[in-house]
Design a protein around this nucleic acid. Structure first.
Lengths: 416, 416
DNA sequence: GCATTATTTTCAATGCTCGAAAAAACAAGT
DNA sequence: ACTTGTTTTTTCGAGCATTGAAAATAATGC
């Protein structure tokens, strides 16, 4: 059952969540604006903000006295997140590097550690152990902040198990099958959540382009891997694992090129950096891919293709064809209004565009609904981080702060 | 925004909906059982059922006096739907036939009309007009029941527009683009809802096999077309258009066999009845498919394959391969625990099984999560009807009856 | 007829929302 | 300096749906 009994408790949780969501989306707002944004009455707004203020979740902003346009009536007091109300530790784990960030409840970066990841690292130290040590190190550098650490969120690559507690498969060496999320949760007695990188990319891109909030979007990462996340119109943040895919490992050609995952014919085997390079240099399709490709090599190939080199353009055509047919096939199940191509591969988008659009045009849904808008964005790091942070903070908002019981009303009033 | 302000109104709607849902799923239940099923207190149960009784939505069942095992305490009074509370008219429109059914609020069939559909019919009469006349005819035969008609629900084949008001494309001749749903809604001043046939099949199969309620299922129809619906664990009935796909028109082979939809290489072009026959008889792939295939021909082919005929078994291998790769590709986006093969093609399931499983085994998600359970069911008519009826009745439950305002409590008490 | 048992209802308390009215905090005009 | 107008915010009482506990109801068993 997805639906539960509703009582005054769930009413409070729902409406407090609505208020926190509005602040998350729009930044600081006055009670009046908050009321019209959420649809709650002014009376309820007063009650809810009073509660949130008493619990030090939000604060009244001391308005800059130089606020230019003087308005007529009583000046609005804007409410914003109390940045010290909570902190979150965010890990972004990728194949050859990781990053640990400490952010406050308002979404400001407090500290950050970059961690190179040797392929053998997790064979010599348990991932959970490694991550625990890094957080402890971060804790020594930020003793005050980490005292109110409320959540650990981790971006990973690979296939999560059904309840999202560990990886069943991952391109990150020696990471799959280890219970690092649970051991972190035990070590710090905090909720730990795992998110798939491709899905965070999709959510983060959306936060950076608010007009995508009303669209259904397939966000495709093209680079060292191929991945995709889906987002749906209206939903601030998808529930559960909604929006995750294994797009990069969708079959493109039966018995085709060898993929890093060990299967044959995956889209990634044609469209990722190693796939394109393999095609361009006529390396046999069944050659085992290198663990990683120097970015320079990939950039050079793009440049060669842009100057008309035949084998280079051919390789990007093959890549575009794989992505295009993959998207065309996906559209039988999920039919987005927008397709975003993000990551290093976005630079070669123009080289793949024709093949992608040709493949899409062969799909019945495209003939009927028209081609989706296809847009290329280069940077993937910022959206992934943004998606991860928003997920973590939103979890704190909804699962923790919105669910807090009321302090008996009117007892405490800050006189400051 | 998907989320709205919660107040006492939405609490009542939610909890009344919970009660009606429980009755829909389990049939008549006593107040005590209803309370434990929904999680509501006995006190609330009394209040809610009192209300529903006063509004004649449910009735207390006069228990059969021959109820065998005499229990100790006060006997439980079971509550069931008041079958005359509402009626729904259900159209199932297919390529060459349609059917109109009148059902009561309890889910009992009241009347039914079968309607052969000539291919030119909707060229000579507007679909909305035709459907209106049939309902009026039904109304003459059932004057009392149709007076409390509350909803019209229609099963269609093809691609719906985004708000589900009309078809953008359909294999049913001259149906796409006509505003038949809206004109019916105007004519009878009733809500009219369109559902995609493949999706109803998925929901209906689930109602007939309750153990599938906790599974994620891809239900594939194989017959005159190929279609698929998805259902998700726990959800009684998917929201909106969730679970609809265009699986039959997912590309299987670039530039491949000609499909009825006009595109090339669709799964349907290989795995539907006409596709298999075309392969078996070595008719060129680019031959325009006939509008429909006599069932006898398809049955004969299955029999020939079962007795070892080479071209027949080959045709089913090709079909299985198309379905298998389609499923393997779908699983990059939606990874079900069960796959159901339903319809005439289920009889040839064993002929396709090896190819389907081989293709699935090539998908990374299958290597990681294991093969989903694959089950064949023959009958598709009953599940489709059941799905359509459940959708319509559930809409009446949730959108209409659960939302009804309270009658001032305690005023009216039936003394019977 | 009385004890036992299970179901259902009643009752008072709780907690949330809402509309209307009042209070607060400022700008502008006199 | 004081009044008026404007906008934001709070207060107040009413309404409503929930809940736990206690009471009432309706049967069986002895």
């Amino acid at each position: 059952m997805t639906r539960f009994v509703s009582d005054s408790d769930s009413v409070r949780r729902q409406n407090r969540g609505l208020v926190l969501s509005a602040l998350r989306v729009h930044g600081p707002l006055s009670r009046t604006v908050l009321a019209s944004q959420t649809g709650l009455s002014h009376a309820s707004m007063t009650a809810i903000t009073q509660d949130l203020l008493a619990q030090h979740i939000v604060t009244e902003l001391a308005e800059t006295p130089s606020s230019d346009a003087k308005a007529r009536g009583r000046p609005a007091v804007r409410i914003g997140f109390n940045r010290t109300a909570a902190y979150a530790a965010l890990f972004e784990i990728e194949v050859s590097r990781a990053r640990l960030s400490l952010v406050d409840y308002g979404g400001t970066l407090v500290d950050r550690i970059d961690l190179p990841l040797a392929p053998t690292l997790f064979a010599t130290i348990a991932p959970g152990e490694f991550l625990r040590e890094r957080i402890e190190y971060l804790g020594k550098r930020n003793p005050v902040e980490t005292k109110t650490l409320r959540r650990i969120a981790i971006s990973v690559q690979g296939i999560l198990d059904r309840d999202g507690r560990s990886l069943k498969w991952s391109p990150i060496a020696h990471l799959a099958g280890t219970p690092f999320a649970d051991s972190l949760a035990d070590a710090f007695d905090l909720p730990v959540t795992l998110y798939k990188r491709g899905r965070l990319l999709a959510e983060g891109t959306r936060w950076l382009n608010p007009e995508l909030h009303d669209a259904s979007v397939a966000t495709v990462f093209v680079g060292s891997t191929v991945a995709m996340g889906m987002t749906f119109p209206g939903e601030i943040l998808g529930r559960g694992n909604e929006g995750t895919t294994e797009f990069g490992h969708m079959n493109h050609m039966p018995n085709g090129a060898l993929c890093r995952c060990g299967m044959r014919g995956c889209i990634e085997a044609y469209a990722s950096d190693y796939g394109v390079l393999r095609t361009a240099y006529s390396v046999p399709e069944t050659t085992t891919p290198a663990p990683s490709v120097p970015p320079q090599q990939y950039d050079d190939l793009i440049q060669r293709a842009e100057t008309g080199d035949r084998s280079a353009t051919h390789a990007f055509n093959i890549a575009g064809r794989a992505i295009g047919f993959g998207l065309s096939r996906m559209m039988a199940v999920f039919d987005p209004s927008h397709i975003l191509i993000v990551g290093p591969g976005a630079r070669s988008f123009e080289l793949m565009r024709t093949e992608i659009e040709t493949a899409l045009a062969g799909a019945l849904v495209c003939r009927v609904n028209g081609l989706p808008a296809i847009i290329a964005y280069r940077d993937e790091k910022e959206p992934i981080f943004r998606g991860l942070m928003m997920k973590a903070l939103n979890e704190i908002d909804q699962a923790e702060f919105a669910a807090l019981p009321t302090l008996s009303r009117g007892v405490e009033r800050s006189t400051g």
